[in-house]
Design a protein around this nucleic acid. Structure first.
Length: 271
DNA sequence: AACGAGACCTGGCAGC
DNA sequence: TGCTGCCAGGTCTCGT
């Protein structure tokens, strides 16, 4: 479910209600996520106050005085805010009960998500230390992408999805950004000209930013019992539109497989 | 160093 | 209706 815009939206939705709150109890119903949830999580966190929330790539971080809770939503995870007495469903694996009487609940049917605890600088955690630049930061520019791609023979679409190069560009936004930049997803990344790198960077930023704004505008729905994330409602240019007419030129959208993932593109607009 | 394939899981849907 | 097979928004690990 979550790509970067959704994680960012989740961060904003969670930071408001829970920053400064005391953790009363952690309930782990199923520790078998991508990695085992630490068994002593409750004793680690009970009675401690969250100082702030932040995000690195698609990881959500809850900072405590003595360590950091690291959350990842995987492919199907979401965080819900529910009253303390709300019964748990089949896929509600971890509950964080806070002093404000609300539970922050991790629901993750496919269990690709993660709940981890880091002592010391969380950015030095093995999962975070090797990550590439944040796409919305200034450091991610045409220069950076150009340098990062010179030695790469993999298709440009695969490389912008490589979290060691740049984080947070998932399968949907990779296709959408390439369409907006009018760049074909297939050629080797190393062949992309400097101006095209510049354009691609610009469109990645704009695509993600638009999606965050769309997600932010439906925050209430997102956290409601059956709410859909906002960006779900936005119209994609190419993603999931195989055979349908391109919104710009009318040509039929094509789909191919790259790196075992579906890629969507317009054969006429994207050269 | 960089690439591609495989792995982890469950649910939904198309096709028979 | 029920079964089978395929697909899914992530990303680490391993063999080449």
């Amino acid at each position: 479910m979550p790509e970067l815009p959704e994680v960012e939206t989740t961060l904003r939705g969670v930071a408001g209600p829970f920053t400064g709150q005391v953790m009363l109890a952690v309930t782990v119903r199923n520790p078998a996520l991508r990695w085992p949830v630490p068994v002593d999580l409750n004793s680690l966190m009970q009675g401690r106050r969250v100082e702030r929330f932040s995000r690195r790539a698609k990881y959500l971080l809850a900072h405590f005085p003595h360590g950091t809770l690291i959350l990842h939503l995987g492919m199907s995870g979401r965080l819900c805010i529910v009253p303390a007495d709300e019964p748990a469903g089949k896929h509600d694996h971890v509950d964080f009960l806070f002093g404000n009487g609300h539970i922050l609940r991790l629901r993750d049917p496919r269990r690709f998500g993660a709940v981890l605890w880091a002592v010391g600088d969380p950015l030095q955690h093995p999962l975070l230390a090797a990550l590439g630049v944040e796409p919305l930061e200034d450091k991610f520019g045409g220069d950076y992408l150009c340098r990062a791609t010179r030695s790469r023979s993999a298709p440009i679409k695969n490389v912008i999805m490589d979290s060691h190069a740049v984080v947070g560009v998932g399968n949907i936004y990779a296709s959408e950004s390439l369409f907006r930049a009018r760049i074909n997803p297939k050629p080797p990344a190393g062949k992309l000209s400097k101006p095209r790198c510049e354009r691609l960077v610009r469109e990645i930023k704009a695509t993600l930013q638009d999606a965050i704004e769309a997600g932010g505008s439906s925050l209430r729905d997102f956290f409601g019992a059956d709410g859909n994330p906002g960006y779900f409602q936005q119209q994609h240019f190419v993603y999931g539109r195989t055979g349908e007419p391109c919104r710009v030129c009318g040509a039929a959208i094509r789909s191919i497989r790259q790196g075992q993932r579906a890629t969507f593109y317009c054969p006429k607009c994207q050269r």
